[in-house]
Amino acid sequence: MKGWLLLLFAIVLELTGTLSMKYSDGFARVLPSIMMFVCYAASFTMLNLAIKTIDVSVAYAIWSGVGTLLITAAGVFLFKETLTALKIASIMVIIFGVIGLNVASRV
């Protein structure tokens, strides 16, 4: 259970780091730039600790897949990015891949 909680923290930190990257405006803004590095370092640390108890393939797929889903939603809602049918279909492929890896690790 601890590994899954660490993975959740890793995902939240990765999302925060990616949002900070956008807000840094190509390193033009100092605080978001610093936040990006701090959040990514903390995210990788949490992911590293999570894979002590979760298969690395499953943990990484969930970390990157959920992160992709969340940053896509943030892009749509915060930055008014468009959400096309192809983007939705691609996200569904990622979600099904994460589910498949999780199921396969239990067999």
Rank of each mutant, 00 (worst) to 15 (best):
S20E: 01
S20V: 03
K22N: 10
K22F: 13
Y23S: 07
Y23T: 05
Y23N: 08
Y23K: 11
Y23R: 09
S24F: 06
S24V: 12
D25M: 13
D25Y: 13
G26Q: 06
F27G: 08
F27N: 14
F27K: 09
A28W: 08
R29G: 10
R29I: 15
R29C: 12
V30W: 12
V30F: 14
L31H: 12
L31P: 05
L31E: 05
L31W: 11
L31A: 13
P32K: 04
S33L: 07
S33N: 10
S33F: 06
I34P: 09
I34E: 08
I34R: 08
M35H: 15
M35A: 15
M35Q: 14
M35V: 14
M35D: 14
M36A: 11
M36Y: 05
F37S: 15
V38Q: 09
V38P: 04
V38A: 11
C39K: 06
C39A: 15
Y40A: 04
A41H: 05
A41L: 12
A41T: 08
A41W: 07
A41R: 06
A41S: 12
A41M: 10
A41P: 03
A41D: 07
A42P: 01
S43M: 03
S43I: 03
S43Y: 01
S43D: 08
F44A: 02
F44W: 09
F44C: 02
T45I: 14
T45C: 10
T45K: 07
T45W: 14
T45V: 08
T45S: 14
M46P: 03
M46Q: 03
M46W: 00
M46N: 01
M46C: 15
L47K: 00
N48A: 13
N48K: 14
N48H: 09
N48P: 03
L49P: 00
L49W: 10
L49C: 13
L49Y: 10
L49K: 09
A50S: 15
A50T: 07
I51V: 15
I51L: 11
K52Q: 13
K52C: 04
K52L: 09
K52W: 06
T53K: 10
T53Q: 15
T53F: 08
I54D: 02
I54Q: 01
I54G: 00
I54C: 09
D55K: 11
V56S: 11
V56T: 11
S57D: 07
V58W: 04
V58R: 02
Y60V: 12
Y60L: 15
Y60R: 12
A61V: 04
A61D: 03
A61R: 04
W63A: 01
W63D: 01
W63V: 00
W63L: 01
W63K: 01
